[in-house]
Amino acid sequence: MPRLRLAVFKFASCDGCQLSLLDCEDELLAITDAVEIAHFAEASSTLAPGPYDLVLVEGSITTAQDAERIQEIRKQAGLLVTIGACATAGGIQALRNFADAAEYTRAVYPHPDYISTLATSTPIAAHVKVDAELRGCPISKESLLEFIAATLAGRAPVLPARPVCIECKSRGTVCVLVQGTPCLGPVTHAGCGALCPSYRRGCYGCFGPSETPNTAALAARFTALGQTPREIVHAFRNFNAGAAAFKRESEANEHKTD
């Protein structure tokens, strides 16, 4: 039986999510027994042409060339899966969507005319059909392994969209929110294992919104804890600023006065 052909493509991103594949130190060589890594520029100089059975896409679309490139990649892809917050929601670079992108360019580059970039950073799903999303900034390697294993077995991957709170409860972490620390856990997609509360800090939402998140109720709770509207905007406006539920909540708080 031919091995599953895997490809990894990168857009605007930090490389961290694709690094998760190389961070599977114990599993990497076993994966390559079951999967042909046909195109993975960070790992191999062998860049085989498509079509590919499974394409992992990291990063967001921020240039006109990349908007064209993702169309070509889609044509070569059986399953196309976004890995991480950039590909799934636009990433931290989507903060430009709330600002003046031309001014951003002027702020960083002495010759902004050399730089060609779109005014927005958009998720892959805004451009092509996406078959599945792996959440996180970065993704967890456990979810990546689960996805690859499920694909090989022909079953649906188990990636629950419940909130981080459930993971806190199951590991027995004392709730930081009831202790007065603002925490996005109640509205954030599980998958990290409730990492931040276990390090005595509030969740900062790097896995993006959970299913049916009540962000307004959480924002009201933050207000009761003494947070200003500006702080609430910042809480919802970071690595998943472009995710619909977080975007809506940050905008709802933006015009309230501190």
């Binding site: 921020t62 430009r96 600002a99 001014e103 951003y104 360019t105 960083v108 910042h234």
Partner: peptide
């Protein structure tokens, strides 16, 4: 590599 403008987007953050 598409620029991500970190130095610009950090402005105004705590």
């Amino acid at each position: 590599e598409p620029p991500r403008f970190f130095e610009a987007l950090l402005r105004g953050r705590d």
